[in-house]
Structure formats: C-alpha cells, structure tokens
Amino acid sequence: MRTIRLLVIVLALGMHTFAQDKDIIHIWPGDVPGETAPKHPAHPTSDTTHGVVRLTDVTDPTLQVFRPARPNGAAVVICPGGGYKILAINLEGYEIAKWLNTLGFTAFVLQYRVPDKEQGALQDVQRAIRLVKSRAAAYRINPDKVGVLGFSAGGSLSARISTLYATDSYPRVDAADDQSAKPAFSVLIYPAYLDKGEHRTLTPELKVNADTPPMFLFATADDFYGNSALVMAGALRDAKVPVELHFLSYGGHGYGLRKGNPAADTWPSLAAKWLAPYGR
C-alpha cells in the first residue's frame, strides 16, 4: 500500500512539472502586429557562457506560467534582459519565476520579440499584462495586483510599459485588450537604456508622472548602465511616485539570482520585503 501511495505522489509531482512546463500562452492568437516573419519557436544561440540559455529570433511571443504552491493573489510578468538582441531566458526568466513562486507570486515569463524589435517588445509586454489580467480568475490572482519585473533591457522594457501603458501600441485583438496595461508595481534590477536623454538624463520616451506605478530599483556603481537606475529614481521622486532605490558599490551586470556575487546575494531579500504588501 505504501509503495502504491509513493508511486501516486511521484506521478502527481511529475504531472505537475509537465503541466507547468507546458503551461504556455501564445499572446497573439493571429497575426503578430508589425511582424513579417512567420511564427516559429525561438532559437537558442550557440553561446551558453556561464550556463545562460540565450534565445533569439522570437516571432511568436509567449508567456510561460509558473504557479506557486500557495498563491498570494498577486502576479508578476517577468521581462528577461539581453540588450534587445537575445533573452537570457533561464538566468533572468525561469530562475526568477521559481524564486517568485516561493514568495507566493504567480509568475509569467515573457518571451518578447528580439532581436532589434523594441516597438514589437513594447506591444508584447502591453498585450501580456492585459492577458494576465483577463485570466485572473483562472490563475487565482487579483487583476489589480499584476506587476512587472525586468533585468537590463528587460528593465528598460518594464520602465517603458510603466510609463507608456496608456498609449495603445497595437490595434485591439479581443476582449483581453479591454483591460488596462498598467502594472500595479514595477521592479527594475540593473536596468539599462533609461538615461538616453541629453547629458545622460532620463530617456525622453519615458513619461514619468504621478500615475506611474510604484517602483523598486537596484543597481551597482560598477555597472556600465548604473546611471539608468539613478535617473529613473530621481524622476519618480520628482513626480512624488513611491520609489525605493538600492545602489551597491560592486556587482557589475547580468548576475540574476546566482550566488557568489555581492549584488545577487543582496537584492532578492530587499525586493521580497518591498513586494510583500502586494501579496496580502
């Protein structure tokens, strides 16, 4: 009897893992706006340096769903980085989703269009947030507690949707597009490309105002892109938007959650504390 019970448990766990691996949402049911190439799975590059899986040639944007054992009613759309060239899909996607699951958040890893499709990426994240909200009941989440988290170029994309959510970037597809694309909160970890204004000021595209969602920013002084977090924090402060900025001396760029880097060892606990109210 005990053997049978153990077998049932093992099979159940295996089915859960399989179901999670296959829980993928194709965010555009028909034609992808502005895309001329046919839909196909993203291509992994031959570069696997530091154990990072790098995807490129994304023509069929997707959300992969990671469900927590104990949902807290909130969700996060994750935007991996990669310079708008590739997506560091495991380092800044799957590994982050599993961490968020431990905090109770339902996580959605976004494969947005790359390479060199920044407008397409904005369309993808805007549609992704609307889709998640439209399926809130199915995923046991509150549509008013759907946030965004991004790294590097994904941090840029998260900042863009946080400031451009009210401007429709594509024609309405279906009822999901009746939802607001505004994130409830934004987490930007070593964001890039936010300081393209004159004299390295805020990128003009980013229209920060009092309605911009609360934001958590983390970066380091030795990161080439570190100024991005500083200028964004200043703009949010000036607009009286709740903002929390952490700026360490060392850590560089592209570390994700992996141990052994002082920044990677620091930001998760700070972000978890900041995120906690959204899971209540």
Rank of each mutant, 00 (worst) to 15 (best):
E244Q: 06
N209K: 00
P213Y: 12
F216T: 12
G147F: 09
R135W: 08
Q119Y: 13
Q123D: 04
D23P: 07
I25P: 00
Q20I: 12
L91F: 02
F218G: 09
P214G: 11
C79W: 04
G197W: 04
I96M: 11
N72P: 02
P268D: 13
V187M: 09
D168P: 04
A136C: 06
A88F: 00
S134V: 02
K182L: 15
F108K: 00
L188A: 07
D178Y: 07
A219M: 08
V231W: 05
G30M: 04
V114A: 02
V241L: 14
P61N: 11
D47V: 14
D60V: 05
A97K: 04
D31Q: 14
T56A: 07
P38V: 08
R172F: 01
L131M: 08
L188M: 15
N142C: 15
R54W: 06
Q64N: 04
N72G: 01
I24A: 03
R160L: 10
I27R: 03
Y170N: 09
L100W: 03
I9G: 01
V58W: 00
L87Y: 14
T266A: 13
R258G: 13
A75Q: 07
L270A: 06
F218C: 09
G93A: 04
N101S: 02
I27V: 10
V77H: 13
S162P: 10
V125G: 08
A166E: 15
T201S: 15
A75I: 06
A136W: 02
A192F: 07
L164N: 10
A176W: 11
E95P: 02
A184C: 15
A159V: 01
P191L: 05
